[in-house]
Write a protein that binds this DNA or RNA. Structure first.
Lengths: 229, 229
DNA sequence: CTCCGAGTGTCCGTATATCGGACACCTTTG
DNA sequence: CAAAGGTGTCCGATATACGGACACTCGGAG
């Protein structure tokens, strides 16, 4: 099996300056991203270059250097002597939903097939909910068709209400006819993924037994959460 | 006044390695962002680390180093041996709209006051339009109230239709009652800002004379475009 | 069973890209 | 008009990032 001889680095590497970081990383990129974050975090106020230098703890000269690539890619924009977020971020963010889709599909497929109902992943955007991924069961005669991209209030429908569920409350919620007369929904929040307010659920044309389907939906939500961890 | 003596850099700087880039910049950050972009650009497929190294033209070791900060900030996420966009991007993108607002407000204020009508900036998100900034005139007895965050189809209303106007077509478009019975709108596209599909317009309760208001709206749209340049 | 190719992850010495202090300048404010 | 606070740029020193080389794993193909 080839033992890990490894040539023995003898001493824990004291080559030049004692490699402070255990994990090898990139300081410059780290600072660049800190800079971007600093610009984002300054809502309402007005972040000047000197401000930013102070915030990320680097020299002004460094900020100038770092701004160039950020500006070139439109992640940041200079407005006089102030720095603002740029539209490049929108372009990038637009591509995250499709990739999120891919990650969630397996769990949704599994849920759709086992319940025999259309399954969906819905994320919060502001105070609205948007369907990001939808999977229809393959073996049913009839099922509900549900379009990706659909939006509705966070306060309506199982998908929307589930997103608002606190940790103390039950793990799933069911509604009937809130978004569409005759439609029944059960959904559970996707928990434990930083920066994501979302839910996983199913929609049917006939009433669902929450005691059966509820746990399945919760499991699917947990699986999606794990995939995004 | 201190004349620009400048100490004369004598030769165009040939210190060590002929400073290839005229502008001082940050190669590492540039690569890091190229990496992020590369991840974003790989829709549907599956970008592996070696792929990414090839795409951005760097060694695999470099990609490993660069991934650390990107991953720490949630801009990127590792899925087995594949790399996907992370949810941190959504958090960042959420902060761009407010900052966009600030940039557009002066032009909208000017437009609202001069026309005496509620002015708005509307951006496209997918195939829907969303109101990002709204300014109501200060001197009118009545005016239309319009809520920031409102969404509607890109195919309806002056604000939506204007976004789709091609360069060959007229610079503004007017509609009546498409979003709200009794409401009249005139809007013009914001042109020449990369990554932004948006329009600027006004809404009133009485018919508007396009020959008068049209040019004003076009001017406002151009001003907004310039502010975002 | 073994070879091969294509992956990942990590180490190291080297050289290069980044660092930050210092400078020149410009506007605003007391 | 001096002081304060800003921007933008230069430079030599050195910390930082570079990429080749290594150790390893996995999955066919021969």
């Amino acid at each position: 099996m080839a033992r890990p001889v490894r040539t023995i680095p003898s001493s824990p590497s004291v080559s030049t300056t004692a490699r402070s970081l255990g994990k090898e990383s990139s300081l410059t990129l780290e600072r660049g991203l800190a800079l971007l974050q600093a610009v984002a975090d300054s809502d309402s106020e007005a972040p000047t270059i000197s401000d930013l230098a102070a915030t990320i703890g680097a020299s002004r000269a460094a900020v100038y250097r770092l701004l160039v690539p950020l500006q070139d890619r439109g992640l940041v924009r200079r407005e006089g002597s102030r720095v603002r977020l740029g539209l490049g971020l929108l372009r990038l963010a637009a591509k995250v939903a499709p990739q999120l889709r891919h990650a969630a599909l397996p769990a949704l497929r599994q849920l759709a097939e086992s319940v025999g109902a259309t399954a969906h992943l819905t994320v919060a955007d502001g105070d609205e909910a948007q369907a990001i991924a939808v999977v229809e069961p393959s073996w049913t005669t009839y099922h509900v068709a549900y379009r990706v991209g659909t939006r509705h209030s966070l306060r309506r429908g199982a998908a929307g209400k589930a997103i608002g569920l606190r940790a103390a409350e039950p793990g799933w919620i069911g509604t009937t006819g809130e978004l569409q007369t005759g439609a029944h929904g059960i959904a559970a929040p996707v928990r434990g993924v930083a920066g994501l307010r979302a839910s996983v659920g199913v929609v049917t044309m006939e009433p669902l037994d929450g005691n059966i389907v509820g746990p399945q939906v919760i499991t699917a939500a947990a699986t999606v959460a794990a995939a995004l961890r």
